[in-house]
Amino acid sequence: MMTLKTARQVLRAYRPSGEDDEERDVRAALKVAGRHPVLEAEFQNQLAFDRAIAAKLEANPVAPETAADLAEAAQRLEARRRRRLSFRDPAMLAVGLAFLFLIGVVGWVFVGQGSSFAGMQEVAEMVEQGGRVGPDRFTELETPAGTLADWFVMQNFDGFAVPPGFEAAPVVGVRQFKFEEIPVAVAAVARPRAMFYVFEAQPLGLTIPADRWRFGAYGPKGRNAFAVRQLGPMAFVVALRDGDEAELKTYLARWPDAPR
């Protein structure tokens, strides 16, 4: 229970506007005053005096031009405070960090999973489809890969090309097929066993920066690797018949002039 002394102390700091009425210590002090007529009279006297003083002082108006200048300065302060809060507010910080984390995760997934690039899944299916046929479906043709453009033109396939460094690759057979109505030129390379595929990049939505390889996997459990790069409007694919991405990178490094 609140003592008389504490109640008096609390009530002496009571705001005459009544804004303190819901405060727990003020309610307790008012209860004490209700039981002590002297304190009650003292408090009512104080309240009347405070209200009279406040009413007199508030009657002195603020000049309109002063009020306008003060309002402008107050708005500048409030605007500055809000800008500071936008960076200091823990909620905003949490949102910012979460956003950065999301960007990081998306970037990691995007970069780390090559096959998630547009068209890579289709390339994997195309390579798998192309690799299922036997040697009897190939036309025997032993020639360096760099000489095949004319042969394919004769077969109504325009645009066959290999990247610099791959011209000397020893081709042993060639064929054409269609993947989702897209003409594909195929060259089988003897050592080591690999396939070169050339087709238009745009229908599969492939867009690969110049001189960059993009790697993917195909076959049972994604055991075999392929690599794609873009040569103008055409896509060039190297697919190992039996080898993972590490082996494919070793294979690519064997071509002395091939860009890395």
Partner: peptide
């Protein structure tokens, strides 16, 4: 505070 202190305030100028 003197009793009825508010009475002293009412007639005064701000």
């Amino acid at each position: 505070l003197a009793p009825d202190a508010a009475a002293a305030v009412h007639p005064l100028e701000t």
